[in-house]
């Protein structure tokens, strides 16, 4: 089988190239990790070298300074509230927009997805003004609710794109069985959308968990409401001359999302793929 062995060699070369490319690609992250284990002197003297010993003092110091467990709970709460609303409202909207194609729904679709194009910086002062009036600023749940508004445009767009591929016969048969539109959505359509929902959840968790400017405006006031990225940002600002602590704070800020990703990686890829295959 000459052709087969040549193919094997080709694959091997391809694999080696891919591994090298990935190694270079991820090197900056690796560098951040190793520098978080160094002392200040070590960082200043040589940033490339591996740490002389695995020194976790930086971590104790930063975890204590940042009040890490508290931040962690804040992030979970904000993200959970945000995701719930985004998934519920976007899937519902995308469903009806696809199924009931009328002038109203196409206008509604445009109205809902257009904000993807409005730069956030252009209305941030007035946003805080409005949020103060309806009392959504300065609280974790309030911030979570605000994410509904900011997340719905893209989520609706994604749901809609997949909704188009779900055959209409499915809901028609549900109607014939006497289900209402809402029941059909809950019991028939939403389960079909599960892979897409997984995609939306994953994408939005990444976004909300790591978001910066909105939490900066809304919950930076108090230690009790701060998010992880904000604390890391403030920490880097405060200790910006002490790279070893800054690196540690950054590592601590990304580790939760890293774990989240590693655990769910299969699900992420599967979700996206399954959604596409419906076409």
């Amino acid at each position: 089988m000459k052709r087969n062995s040549r193919l094997k060699i080709n694959y091997f070369i391809l694999e080696v190239i891919a591994i090298i490319a990935a190694a270079i690609f991820i090197y900056p992250v690796f560098l951040m990790f190793i520098n978080s284990f160094k002392t200040f002197r070590e960082v200043i003297i040589d940033v490339i070298a591996l740490p002389q010993q695995l020194n976790i003092d930086n971590y104790f110091y930063v975890i204590d300074k940042m009040n890490y467990p508290r931040l962690f709970v804040n992030n979970i709460l904000i993200t959970a509230v945000g995701i719930t609303g985004i998934v519920a409202f976007s899937s519902l909207a995308a469903y009806i927009i696809d199924r009931s194609r009328s002038r109203f729904t196409s206008l509604a679709f445009l109205f809902i997805i257009t904000p993807m194009l409005i730069p956030f910086q252009t209305f941030m002062i007035t946003l805080l003004k409005v949020m103060n009036i309806i009392n959504l600023s300065g609280s974790r749940v309030g911030l979570g609710i605000q994410y509904w508004g900011f997340g719905i445009p893209m989520a609706t767009f994604i749901y809609f794109n997949f909704m188009k591929t779900v055959p209409k016969e499915i809901d028609e048969s549900a109607f014939i069985d006497g289900a209402t539109t809402f029941q059909t959505f809950i019991y028939v359509i939403f389960p079909i959308l599960k892979p897409v929902t997984a995609t939306v959840i994953v994408l939005d968790v990444m976004w909300i968990w790591n978001d910066f400017l909105l939490p900066l405006l809304m919950v930076n006031d108090s230690q009790k409401t701060k998010t992880l990225v904000l604390a890391a940002y403030n920490f880097v600002g405060q200790y910006n001359t002490q790279w070893h602590y800054a690196m540690t704070a950054m590592v601590l800020a990304i580790v939760p999302s890293l774990i989240f990703f590693v655990l769910l990686q299969k699900y992420i890829v599967k979700g996206v793929v399954a959604g596409s295959l419906k076409g």
């Binding site: 941030m124 002062i125 805080l128 003004k129 949020m131 103060n132 600023s137 300065g138 900066l216 405006l217 930076n220 006031d221 108090s222 230690q223 940002y233 403030n234 600002g237 405060q238 910006n240």
Partner: peptide, 22 residues
């Protein structure tokens, strides 16, 4: 006493707070 500090963007954040009545 609630004490908060930031270096970057301080003037921005302050303006936002002043304007929103906070």
């Amino acid at each position: 006493i609630n004490y908060e500090t930031t270096q970057s963007d301080y003037p921005t954040l302050l303006k936002v707070k002043l304007n929103s009545g906070d």
